[in-house]
Nucleic acid binder design. Sequence first.
DNA 1: TGATGTCTCAACCATCGCCGGGAGACCGGG
DNA 2: CCCGGTCTCCCGGCGATGGTTGAGACATCA
Lengths: 211, 211
Amino acid sequence: MAEQHIRVVLVDDHPVVRAGVRALVDAQGDLDVVGEAADSARALAVVEETRPDVVLMDLSLGEGPGGAETTRLVRAMPSPPQVLVLTTYDTEADVLEAVDAGAAGYLLKDAPPEELFRAIRGTARGETVLAPSVASRLLQRAASPAPKVSPREVEILRLLAKGLGNKEMARELLVSEATVKSHLSHIYTKLGVDTRAGAVATAIERRILRP
Amino acid sequence: MAEQHIRVVLVDDHPVVRAGVRALVDAQGDLDVVGEAADSARALAVVEETRPDVVLMDLSLGEGPGGAETTRLVRAMPSPPQVLVLTTYDTEADVLEAVDAGAAGYLLKDAPPEELFRAIRGTARGETVLAPSVASRLLQRAASPAPKVSPREVEILRLLAKGLGNKEMARELLVSEATVKSHLSHIYTKLGVDTRAGAVATAIERRILRP
DNA sequence: TGATGTCTCAACCATCGCCGGGAGACCGGG
DNA sequence: CCCGGTCTCCCGGCGATGGTTGAGACATCA
């Protein structure tokens, strides 16, 4: 064999998923699962200790820092492993955040095992691996202008979903009511709506807000 | 052994999860995984063929009928197996729909394996098994009066999430604008909010609307 | 040094939400 | 039987709120 075995660490808060990936991956001759972690802190410790080639990262890790933030921390380590995101959702925001955090690939949990194996091997070689649905979604978005809402506007959206009025938001954010209205107008144009209700709906749909 | 082996069928659209549950469950001496299915149609066929004692059912099955509807169909078979829902979310509406469909238990995927095994054995004996977080949520809801919104009000909510104004809704529904406002007021009191935006947010959260 | 983007603000008018009302349908108890 | 309770659906007017327009200050970046 010219190739070394590829060392893999699993990060996922679901024991069932960890067991599944381990069972599938360990059955491959050239892939070894050398560690598991259920949260961000343990993930960093396990990676530090086992020095894997690839980290399979879930994005939702229950309590504490999420998978995107954990990816960033892992990639900040000296001679870091590649990170392959393995998650349930392929939302615009999720993908972009993960890629921005330094992920080398993005795969969905409903992918067939063969695709998972190919993705792990490709990621270990430094390739960028995207699930087909993720790739097409990215291309689709690349065509239409990116609707990126600013941090302040996200703040507004959060209060909006709580049913606050403009006056209340203004008090909460320590600005004038006119400012709040201005932010709202910008949000409307960015999201392609013209009402508070529509803004909340599409913000939730695009995962800018989480229910 | 006084006990027969408990025969289990897995229904989940994620190969990884199926592999995980299979690996964990098969390692138990008294539990046998006798079949798997990734969608509703195959689930019914596999159950018909293997006659299991317990079906582990995911609620989101990708295309086609969901887990709740599939549970209903399985329970409608002659001398049906028990159904144990194993899913990611513990939303009010999800739990109620599953229980209404005939599920005997509701477990979350982040549950430790031991809890899963206990749940399977309990379900096979006909017990009702609820995850702690699910149970507490149900009790909490049982205390507060059920906020049941009428079909007409759901219609209003749908249009509301699209960002329509009262006048537009009135035209759409062939009623006066005043009527729309009245419906909205009722929706507000039922949902415990006092704005359109808040209504949309909590409607989505309570799964009255789907994103 | 423009160009771009974010955050801030004020005034004008349409719109929304609350407060009253009322009509028809269903159901269990007197 | 009919009666009161409950539910859904319907309406109008009034005051508060929301959305638009237009504009300035401040950063970053090519």
